[in-house]
Design a protein around this nucleic acid. Sequence first.
DNA 1: TTGAAAGCGCTAACAG
DNA 2: CTGTTAGCGCTTTCAA
Lengths: 344, 344
Amino acid sequence: MGRKAGPAGALPQRRPTMNDVAARAGVGLKTVSRVVNGESVRPATAELVHAAIAELGYRRNDSARLLRQGTTATIGLLQDDVADPFYSVLARAVEEVVIGRDHLLLTASTGGDARRARDLVTVFCARRVDGLIIVPPAGADLSYLQVEIDAGIRAVFVDRPPQGVTADAVLADNVGGTREGIAHLIAHGHRRIAFLGDRGDLFTAQERLRGYREALAAEGIPYDAALVRLGEPDGEALEAALRSMRSQASPPTAVFTGNGPLSVALIRVLSRWPARPAHVGFDDFELADCLSPGVSVVAQSPAAMGRTAAQMLFQRLTGDEGPAQRVLIETTLIPRGSGEVPPG
Amino acid sequence: MGRKAGPAGALPQRRPTMNDVAARAGVGLKTVSRVVNGESVRPATAELVHAAIAELGYRRNDSARLLRQGTTATIGLLQDDVADPFYSVLARAVEEVVIGRDHLLLTASTGGDARRARDLVTVFCARRVDGLIIVPPAGADLSYLQVEIDAGIRAVFVDRPPQGVTADAVLADNVGGTREGIAHLIAHGHRRIAFLGDRGDLFTAQERLRGYREALAAEGIPYDAALVRLGEPDGEALEAALRSMRSQASPPTAVFTGNGPLSVALIRVLSRWPARPAHVGFDDFELADCLSPGVSVVAQSPAAMGRTAAQMLFQRLTGDEGPAQRVLIETTLIPRGSGEVPPG
DNA sequence: TTGAAAGCGCTAACAG
DNA sequence: CTGTTAGCGCTTTCAA
C-alpha cells in the first residue's frame, strides 16, 4: 500500500538522493559521495551512511554522475537491421566489448534509410554518446557528421566506408573474398559464371563485383554483362534474371551470390528448377551445411568486424589521434558441395 | 588544423553551451532555451540567437535536458543473446516502438547468466532507464528488481515470466502451440512421438512439455518418459538420446523439437541417418522451407512479442496502474512436409 | 517578451 | 577525515 494510492494516482515516486542520505545520516553530502564511491571515510561514519542508504533504499543516479563528469559512458550503434543475422552477430560482438569497458550500448536500425540514419545520428549525438559505430546506408552523404566529429564524438564505420567524412572503417575483404570464391568455381571447370549481387549503389556490392571481374580477368575469361545482375534479393526478379541467363547461347554453369539473403533467395528458386548450377555465396548462413548439396560460401566474420570496430573506437576514446584507419577483415572459403559441382 | 594540435594533444573539445550562445547573441540564457525549444520569442531576437547557434555550432545536450526533466527517455532491453534470430527479431520490434515514442533503446545480452543479468539490470537502473524489457534467465530470482519497480522503474517481461516479482509478461502460447503440433503428428498416425526440449529449468521448455503431455492425454496415448529428453541443443547429446530411443522395443516414429536451435541440431543429426522420422519443431527458422522435406513448425511471432511488450511498457509509463497482465501471443502451425510423413 | 535565480543529482575543488 | 562551495548544461519557477 502507499504505492497504489487509488484513483488519485501513484505517489510522486521521488527517489532518495545523496542529499537525503546525508541528512538522514547526519553527515555532509560529500561524505555520502565518498562512501558510495568507495573512497576513504572513517569506518564509523561509513557505517552511518550505509545504514541511511539501506533505510532509504538509495541508489546512485549515474546519469547525474556522468553529466557532471562530462561523459555518458555510452556508445551508439547504428545499422540497417538488427534482425538480419549478419548485423545481429555484429551487434553482439560490439555489445561485448562495450560492456567490458563499462559503457552501455544504444542501438537503432535505419532500415537502410539515409534520412532515418541521419535523424538517429543526430539523436545519438544530442545525447552526447562518447562514440558511434555506424553501418552507413547506401550512398548516404555523411558530411553532417563532420561537425559532430569535430566536436569530439568519435565514429567508426563498419561493413561500408563513410562518404563525405574521414573516419576509421572496418570492412570485410570483399574483393579478395569474392576473387577466391570465383577462382574456386573456375578451378572446378566453370567459365560461364553468373554474378547475382545486391543493389549497385551498395559499396559491398560494387567491391564484390570488382572481385568477380578481377578473378575472371586473372584467368583470361571475358566479362559478360549478360551474366551479371545487381538488385535486391527479390525472388521473382532473381528468377526472371536466371531464366533469361539460361536462355542464352552459352548459359552459366555456376552462380555466385553476393550476400546471404541473395544466396537464400537463389536456393529458393533453384529448389524448383530442373538442373542445378554450381553455387558459391558470399557470407555464411545457418543451415547452409544442411541443404543438399551443402552450400559453399565465402564466410565473413561479422563478430570479428564488430569486435574490431568497437576496439578501434575505444582506442580513439582513450586518446589515439592517429590518422583514420581502414581495417580489412579476412574471409574464409568453406567448400560444402555446391561449389564443387562440375559444369553440366 | 587546430584540431590536431600536435603531440600536445587535441584541444579540450568543449562544446558550446546555451550560455555561450546567450553571451554570443547578447541575450539571456532562457531566451536561447526558448528559441531552441521553439517557444515564442520575438522574431528579431530569435534571429540573433539562431545566428549565434550557427556560428558556434551549438547543439542542445539532451542528457542535461533530461536530467533536469527527471527522465531519461530511455528503455533498457535485456535478453539472452541478440545474435539469436528469435531475440534479434524481437529486439528489432522493440526498437521500432521505442524510437516511435521518441525514446532510445539500451540493449545488452545476458548469455542466459542470472548473475550477469542482475548486474546489467542494476546498471540500467542506475542510469535510471524509464523502463525495462527483460527476458529473464532461467530460474533467476528477480526479487532484487522489486525495489527498483517500487522506486518507479517499470518492467515488462518477455518470453519467460518473472520469478520473485510481479510484473507484466508477454509470452508465447507455449502449451497451446505444442498441443497443436503434437496433435498434428497424432492426426497423421503417430503414437510414439519423441519430445526433445530445452533445459528443464527453462519456463518455455516446461510449458511445451506440458503441452506435449496434454496433447497425448487428449488422445489417450500414454506418456513415456523414455521418449522425452530435455537439455541444451548439443548435437552429440541429441544423437545419443535419439539412438537410445531408436533401440527401444517401440521406437518413436515422430520427433517434436522444442525450439529453433534444437530443430536445427536435429536436422543435422538426421541428415546422417537412414530412416527419417516425422518432425515438427517449435519456432520457425530461416530455410525451414528449403530443406527436403520442408520442416513443419509451430511458428512463434517474436516481432509481435517484442512489439506487444514495448507497447505495454509505454502504457505503464503513461500512467496505467492496473494489475499486472500476462499476454499470450498465438502460434501458427505451418505444415511443410516433415510433419505430414506417416509412421514408418 | 525576456531574464535572473534556483535546482535536477551528482562530483570537483577547495577548504577546515 | 570531513564539509562547503561550485558547477556539469539544461529547464523551471517567478519576477520584470
